[in-house]
Design a protein around this nucleic acid. Structure first.
Lengths: 278, 278
DNA sequence: CCCAAAATAGAACACCTATTCCATTTTTCT
DNA sequence: AGAAAAATGGAATAGGTGTTCTATTTTGGG
């Protein structure tokens, strides 16, 4: 009679079905639909009675809702909400513990590897939570408006500026990588004007040369975008927009993954914005 | 009477308590302890009856176990197992959906940023699952045994080799970064002998220069360690040890985070190994 | 405006729940 | 070896479970 075996058994499938059918559902049932989507954890763990109270509905309505979605009863639908929780990703501590548990294969290099992987993941998560969307937009606007982007990042940050220079090149965006080869850094930057832009990347301990370059550029009125690790950073104060990136570390070696994600974002977003104004 | 309010309410705390008390527990109770630690999802979702069957124990034993851990009954203990699932981290699809949900702040740059962050995290997860511990150990052994490490990685891989050269320098490990400045790459590598080692990094489309350099080095009997994206890669076949790193991509731009984690691991692990043989 | 159809609330019910209790077995100590 | 203590198995139970059923309300078309 009804749709017989296309019943969602995984959460994304069920969610899709709920969202698709919800608008056509009667009042109480769509009320349940909204509650279920907004409180999936409650649905996974609660009882018919408790969920009914929280969603302002009779217990029988929940059963009718489950049937409207194609299931035999509420329990069957609840199982799908539970599967979602089973599939969740382990959190940091659990990953580390899991590694320690598989300790037979845990030679020192493997421990180091998992340590760095965790630090990288954590750094990215933190940045993803903290990055203010508005800052990103203004930085992209400044960079996309520049005639030439001067990339300043030495020592530990040099791989990042190198990557950006490579990617900008591929994307046909005029840029100069300040590599300080032969001590020519100041001269390389001397061509920059207020129509250009400096993208500076530096972390504690800030390379003195980077700081000097940024100050010189700022004095000439060149707009500056900075990626650094603190508001007290000497390259933050001079910048029009600056990003705070806190990299997690493992045994004292800081990750660079979050910075790299941000760098990739800036390059691609700038290219995307430039391509719009043809 | 009993310990009155130091009852673990979060999973890590409970786990610690179980592991700490398990050895002193009678047979059936420790049987439950083991089952609970090994099948936390079952404990979170199951009923006393179902868990009892799966762990080969009477229902009453589960209640006694919960009391032995300090709780009033099984349900109270189960709540802690459930809290663990609530705190799990969102998976990739959920993160992207969450972003789409917060669509008011989803300017193009922000979408790109979250896309790259997800790609990075995913790449790291995949590598963490697939990397064979043995390979890592042998690679470290080869690199640590080399007099000088020659780092070959151009174009997209150049930031990685640059990073490694910087880190090796800081750690007092003799290395040469082949930067191909002035077309001197072949000459730079010509000093390498079988006592040295080449660490080659290259991904599709393999830079022809990197391939040529690796072949020349291999012909001279220089041991080669490769980081690449497929067993069919021209730099994999010549290598003593090679790593397959599959980077997730966002809108065609591949992440580099997994490669970077691996690179950091190799540098630090080599330094660690060298410092042991004084 | 009325009536048929759909949706809902709420009570009724059969089943399953966690928990308790106590007889029996196992362990521990003298 | 024997007695005391601890641990266990399994039945009993009170309360809660998901589901069904039906009287009542709401909706929507002629």
């Amino acid at each position: 009679m009804t749709d017989f075996d296309d019943i969602p058994r995984d959460f994304p499938g069920l969610k899709e079905r709920i969202l698709e059918r919800a608008p056509a559902l009667p009042k109480r049932l769509s009320q349940v639909a909204i509650y279920a989507i907004e409180h999936p954890d409650e649905v996974a763990f609660g009882t018919v009675a408790s969920i009914a109270v929280h969603s302002g509905v009779q217990p029988s309505t929940l059963v009718r809702f489950a049937k409207a979605m194609g299931y035999q009863g509420f329990s069957e639908l609840q199982e799908v909400f539970r599967s979602r929780l089973r599939e969740r990703i382990l959190n940091y501590d659990e990953r580390l513990e899991q590694l320690r548990h598989h300790a037979h294969s845990a030679s020192k290099p493997n421990v180091i590897f998992h340590g760095f992987s965790n630090a990288a993941r954590k750094s990215i998560d933190i940045l993803q939570e903290r990055l203010e969307p508005g800052k990103l937009d203004s930085a992209v606007q400044i960079l996309a408006g520049a005639e030439t982007v001067y990339l300043v990042g030495l020592r530990r940050s040099f791989p990042i500026s190198t990557y950006m220079s490579y990617a900008f090149g591929k994307l046909n965006i005029k840029n100069v990588l300040i590599d300080a080869i032969g001590g020519q850094a100041q001269e390389e930057l001397s061509f920059a004007t207020s129509n250009d832009c400096v993208l500076a990347i530096s972390f504690t301990p800030y390379a003195s040369e980077t700081v000097a370059l940024v100050q010189a550029a700022a004095a000439k009125g060149v707009p500056i975008v900075s990626i650094t690790d603190s508001g007290f950073s000497p390259i933050a104060s001079r910048a029009k927009v600056w990003f705070e990136v806190t990299e997690a570390n493992f045994e004292g070696f800081r990750s660079m993954s979050a910075t790299l994600s941000l760098a990739m974002t800036l390059t691609v977003a700038v290219a995307e914005m430039k391509s719009r104004r043809y």
